[in-house]
Each structure stands twice: as C-alpha cells, then as structure tokens.
Design a protein around this nucleic acid. Sequence first.
DNA 1: TCATATTCAGATTTTTCTATCCGAATTTAA
DNA 2: TTAAATTCGGATAGAAAAATCTGAATATGA
Lengths: 145, 145
Amino acid sequence: MSILFSRQCEYAIQGVLYLALKPEGEMTSIKELTKRLDIPYHFLGKILQRLAAKGLLMSLKGPTGGFALTKRAKDITLFDIVEAVDGSAFTKNCVLGFPECSGKNPCAVHNTWGRMRDEIYEMLVSKNISDMAKEMKKPEYRVAG
Amino acid sequence: MSILFSRQCEYAIQGVLYLALKPEGEMTSIKELTKRLDIPYHFLGKILQRLAAKGLLMSLKGPTGGFALTKRAKDITLFDIVEAVDGSAFTKNCVLGFPECSGKNPCAVHNTWGRMRDEIYEMLVSKNISDMAKEMKKPEYRVAG
DNA sequence: TCATATTCAGATTTTTCTATCCGAATTTAA
DNA sequence: TTAAATTCGGATAGAAAAATCTGAATATGA
Ligand code: SF4
Ligand code: SF4
C-alpha cells in the first residue's frame, strides 16, 4: 500500500526531481532515468509522456532526445506534479470515505484531519523541485547505481 | 483514489462506527449495515469476518445473528481498525516512495512529512469509536435511508 | 422436525492499477 | 541516404483490489 500518492505519482515525482538536477535545456532519456531510479522503463515512459502532454515537460525524439522541464525547477512545486497525476481529490474527500457528508456537523476527526490535510497541501505547494532536488544528490538516493 | 485508507478500510471503519451505536451485546446483521451504509453486501461480509477472526468483533449465525464489538466502544481506537485492515506501513515508508532511503540525510519533505505522519498516528490512536459514533447519529450520515 | 435467516469459507468475476509489447514517427549523425 | 536511438500511440498482459457467487454450517423459532 502506497501512502498518499499512487505508485505512478511517486515515479513521476522521482523522475521530475531527477530532471531538475540537469542543466537547463539538457535532455535526459528514459533509459538513463530508469537505470538510475530503478523504475520500470515502459511505465516511466508513459508517465513522462502524460506529463509532457500536460505541459509540465518537453520532449524530443531521436538520439540526444529525451525529456526536460518546461519551466525552471524553482517554479515547479510538488503539487504541480501530484495534481497532474493523481488529481487533487484529497483536498476535498472525506478521509473516512463517507460519500455524502458535508461536514456541517463535523464528526470527531473532521477538523483534526482538515488541519492535517491543509498542512499536507501547504507542504506540497511550498516545496519547489529545485530545493528538493539538491538534496537528492546524496549517494543514498542513487538506487541501483 | 481513496486517501490514506483503502476502500476496504473505510468500509471497516464505517461498519464499526455503526456497531458502536448499538446497545452492548446486541447483534447487527450485514443486511442492516449495508442498507444503512450503502456498502456492497458480500464485501462488507468478508471484511467483518476478517475483523471477527482478528478478535475485534464477535459473530453469531442464524436468525437474530450478526456482529457486535468484543470490547466497549470506548476502548477501541481508529488505529485498531486501520491496523487490522491496512496494516501500519504508513508509519514507516517514505512518502515519496523511495525504496532505500534511510532519512539519514533528510530531503526537503522528510521532516515535514514525518511530523504530519506522527500527527495522523496520534489522531488515530486518540480517537475512540464511542466518541466518534455519537457524532454519527446525525441524519446526514444516514446514506440511503 | 423443519423452514428460515444468518454467518462462513472458498472460488470466481470484475475493475482498476501497474507493467509490458510492438510498430510507427522522428531526429541525429555518420 | 542510411542506420541507430529515441519518443509516441495504442494494444495487451499481469497483478492487486474490489465485488460477487455458491453452497455449507449453524442457530432460531414455529
Ligand atoms: S464530518 Fe467526518 S464523516 Fe463527515 S466529511 Fe468530515 S471527516 Fe468525513
Ligand atoms: S529523506 Fe526524503 S526520500 Fe528519504 S525517506 Fe525521507 S522523505 Fe523519503
């Protein structure tokens, strides 16, 4: 069970973080990404294609081709990625899964969870990819070297 | 996409909350539960059976049979249910899905998420089923009357 | 005793998510 | 011009989760 984000979304985050380490404009191939991050090749391909279709990434075919960010890493937040892949339903849905509860007469977890959800959202929009990526240069993140 | 808890776990919570409204020792059938809560009949059956096997519920066959809590609602926390159904992996796994990160050199979200995860855990163990169930008597929770 | 209402156990189906496969289109560089 | 390396698009396969089906076991009460 993956928490908070789908597997696909986790891969997307990991991939974009890796791209953010590259000099602006440089293309990175799926091959390189999957080798470094230990993500299934074709699956990551699909994921990045979708991110490209949504405008978050650009892509180029052919040798020397690959993917790159369309904006500066400073201007991309975690939330941008999460929203593009998993959507933002978590900001609205009841955490207990009740389908028709408005929260007008809030139950015992409503406000508590509401605060946490806001904090999570705040975390996602306040963390930019550039800052996070810098932390990733450490060797322990290089899974499967 | 359900947040935090699997669908099955959400159903379990909803079911147990409903049981907590009943007088101690009274049996409630799957039929009644699913009618009130709008949960698939056979699916909830399976879920409650598993909770019974784990000792959280007791069950009785035959007419007048059904399910009931084994402990007083005051003594059951949300975490008891969540752990029985989804496990407690969320207290340990990396929120970004990195498989081999120890957090020795924490990335930008590690500590922030760590705090939130602790808060979530704290919420789950501090909320008892009795208190929560009282809130559920309100009509808006009665989905599909 | 017998019809009925329930849980129980296991198999099966359906749906959703994850992952793979294949061939076409594009780009590069020799 | 041609071979090679890549992304692209769509189909497909596999795995996991959600939901259903079936028949057996058990308990109730008439
Ligand atoms: S009040 Fe409780 S049940 Fe209703 S939406 Fe909020 S958390 Fe969910
Ligand atoms: S430091 Fe970052 S990548 Fe590592 S476990 Fe913590 S949140 Fe995950």
